[in-house]
Design a protein around this nucleic acid. Sequence first.
DNA 1: GGTTGATCATTA
DNA 2: TAATGATCAACC
Length: 230
Amino acid sequence: MPIPAPLPCAPETEALLLAQAQRLSGYTLGELASLAGIATPEDLKRDKGWIGILLEIWLGASAGSRPEQDFAALGVELKTIPVDGQGRPLETTFVCVAPLTGNSGVTWETSHVRHKLKRVLWVPVEGERSIPLARRRVGSPLLWSPDEEEDRQLRLDWEELMDMIVLGQVERITARHGEFLQLRPKAANARALTEAIGAQGQPILTLPRGFYLKKNFTRALLERHFLLCR
DNA sequence: GGTTGATCATTA
DNA sequence: TAATGATCAACC
């Protein structure tokens, strides 16, 4: 097997993207970092997005901040997901920031959540903290779109959460709302505030929130893939 | 502050 | 021990 090289730019087709991702499975993060010429941090405490950046480099996604999907021309979003030894997710998955104002007329069909999740390249990575970061291995990738059932599950949670936001109940939302999609803070710290709608319809300042996929959702999605591979 | 990339660490 | 609420870094 030839040693792989990072893609210099976004692949032109889904098939090429998937093929490159498949080439990476089995390699450790230390190997991929070294081959890409970047240093591996001791741990992720101060580099929480490092694995995501590393995989973006290898798959030819434009690194850094971008407004749209990782592979805009393909309409594909890249998500690395930390998993345990059984391939089960260790963390929830951030989807996008939740709009807390200006939501009149927004529907599930036109929502950022649905758009982001329309097509996702999932790349599982060993995530147990007992494994040194450099020795964690990349797993086999999955190019996924929500099926009817998954779309319905997400829509029901999204509608519940958005109703609360629109009705000025954002500060009453906890991570317990939603079976598969939850709303949680997404901020630099507790001092970062953004505008939202208060209980009396007045503007308030509150913590920015993000939509996250709960582990039961991503676990099922990865399991479905695993079953199809046997 | 807001976007991207997420995981940390305290609590229940 | 798992999940919630909090936080870290880079770029703009």
